[in-house]
Design a protein around this nucleic acid. Structure first.
Length: 197
DNA sequence: TGCCAGGCCCTCTTTAGGGCCTT
């Protein structure tokens, strides 16, 4: 684990169905390095995703809360994300909240769809699930959503469902928690193609 | 027509059900 570097990520998507949703925003944070890109999804957002994320597509353009957002094609987003991860020149562990139930299946499926999974697998060694980690670290607290964890441990509210802000807050939480290596290892999972979606 | 994610975890469990967490 010592040779690895943890990159905190978050993605916003058109819905919760990991077998078919499209990525809208992908963000990654590692100390002061930040990656954040948007793409126009190919399918409509579910009603709840529109409500929760504030994204909508109109005339082929992406808007968040009525402000236009600069976008790139999805394959550009994915390749530049891999380039960003490769720039650390160390095996990367991608950390996200509930990553095993959402971000990992989506990322894996989409990387495979664009023939980028092998490249992805070459730079990413595992996924660290901070949702599972937080439940092990702090049993019995009132809730484990990222919003409630940020409120309880950092004492602030933030622009949730903006992937960049979510990733930055997750890094702050992790830095406050300072979990020992055995806890981190126990909640880190290998990258493979067998995610259920 | 009517449905619409789904695996993990917990417990008033195991011949099961419901809540959590992600968008």
């Amino acid at each position: 684990m010592a040779d690895k570097i943890i990159v905190f990520i978050d993605l916003e998507a058109t819905g919760l169905d990991t077998s078919r949703c499209d990525i809208i925003q992908l963000a990654a944070v590692c100390e002061e390095s930040v990656f954040n890109k948007y793409t126009v999804p190919q399918q409509n957002l579910t009603e709840s995703a529109t409500e929760v994320t504030g994204f909508r597509v109109q005339s082929g353009r992406l808007f968040r809360r009525d402000s236009p957002v600069e976008t790139v094609p999805i394959d550009d987003l994915l390749t530049s994300f891999i380039d960003f991860l490769r720039s650390f020149r160390r095996p990367v562990v991608l950390a996200a909240h509930n990553v095993m139930r959402f971000d990992a299946p989506v990322l894996t499926r989409v990387m495979k769809k664009y023939d980028l999974f092998l490249q992805f697998q070459q730079v990413v060694s595992g996924f660290l699930d901070t949702f599972l980690l937080s439940k092990r670290l702090f049993p019995g607290i009132s809730g484990y959503s990222q919003v409630s964890l940020v409120r309880n441990f950092l004492g602030k509210s933030y622009d949730a469902h903006n992937a960049e802000e979510d990733a930055k807050m997750l890094q702050e939480l992790y830095n406050v928690w300072r979990p020992d290596q055995s806890r981190v290892m126990a909640n880190t999972f290998k990258v493979n193609e067998k995610y259920f979606y």
